[in-house]
Simulated assay, not measured.
Amino acid sequence: MTRQKILITGASSGLGAGMARAFAAKGRDLALCARRVDRLDELKAELLERHPGIKVAVAALDVDDHEQVPKVFAELADELGGIDRVIVNAGIGKGYHLGGGKLWANKATINTNLVSALVQIETALEMFKKAGSGHLVLISSVLGNKGVPGVKAAYAASKAGVSSLGESLRAEYAKGPIRVTVIEPGYIESEMTAKSATTMLMVDNETGVKAIVDAIEREKGRAVVPRWPWAPLVQVMRVMPPRMTKRFA
Rank of each mutant, 00 (worst) to 15 (best):
G27Y: 08
G27H: 06
L114G: 00
A117D: 10
L114D: 04
A25G: 08
S12L: 10
T109A: 05
F128P: 00
Q120M: 15
Q68D: 14
K94E: 06
T109F: 05
F128A: 00
P52W: 12
Q68R: 15
G27T: 05
R21E: 13
A59N: 08
V88M: 05
W104C: 04
R28V: 05
R36I: 01
H97N: 08
K129S: 08
K102P: 03
V37E: 12
L47E: 06
L48H: 04
A17Q: 07
N113R: 06
E126P: 03
I54K: 11
I87R: 02
A59I: 09
A20W: 05
D62R: 07
C33T: 15
L40P: 01
V115N: 07
A34P: 08
M19Q: 07
I54L: 14
W104H: 14
R39L: 15
L30N: 00
F128T: 00
I54A: 06
A60P: 08
T109P: 06
G95N: 02
G53N: 11
G91C: 04
D84E: 08
L98K: 03
N106M: 00
S12R: 09
D78W: 05
E122M: 11
L76N: 00
L80D: 01
V58M: 09
R50L: 13
L15S: 02
I121N: 07
R35T: 01
G27Q: 07
A24L: 07
A74C: 05
A17V: 05
A60T: 11
G53M: 07
G16T: 02
M19P: 02
N113A: 03
L103W: 12
D84Y: 12
N111A: 07
C33E: 08
N111F: 09
A24E: 04
N113V: 07
R36W: 11
F128S: 00
P52T: 13
V72L: 10
D38R: 06
K71Q: 14
E126T: 13
E75F: 07
I83S: 00
H51V: 14
I121T: 15
V69I: 14
G10F: 06
F73V: 13
I54E: 05
G99T: 10
G91N: 04
F128R: 01
G93C: 04
T9P: 10
S12C: 06
N89R: 05
N113S: 03
L30G: 01
T123W: 10
V37T: 01
E42Y: 01
A57G: 12
G100S: 13
